[in-house]
Amino acid sequence: MEAFASHYSYFVTVLLMAAGLYIMIARGNLVKKLIGLSIFQTSVYLLYIAPGKLIGGTAPIVSQAYQVYSNPLPHVLILTAIVVGIATLALGLAIVVRIREAYGSIEEDEIIAADVGHGDRE
């Protein structure tokens, strides 16, 4: 029980990650898959940020009034990760739009079926 209270933030992270992973594997729609990917990403943000928090601390802006700060290093890394994540999302969506142009569908099974049918004809 004690372990549950002190590791609660990790469990939240794991559950969010599981939800994102499940969306990515189980759903055939490509846009939905990308949303699952972003949920997975936000779980990684939590994984980095949560251990950096100190109870009783404050945001890492140096001031005479405070002595305890949360850890600034994960914040920096996650700022980079957020921006790179949006770049990945934009590129993925552009590819989805192209797939839609080429196949007329963004459902995984229909795309595979179209590929198989095309192979038979050749």
């Binding site: 972003s38 936000t42 943000y45 940020i49 949560a50 950096g52 928090k53 100190l54 601390g57 404050t58 945001a59 890492p60 700060y69 949360s70 994960p74 914040h75 996650i78 700022l79 957020i82 921006v83 949006i86």
Partner: peptide, 17 residues
């Protein structure tokens, strides 16, 4: 993220995410 004292990250997440 604000609750975790990561104000810069929270700002980026709200605007970008």
């Amino acid at each position: 993220l604000v609750a975790l004292d990561a104000v810069d990250v929270a700002m980026t997440e709200a605007s970008v995410g």
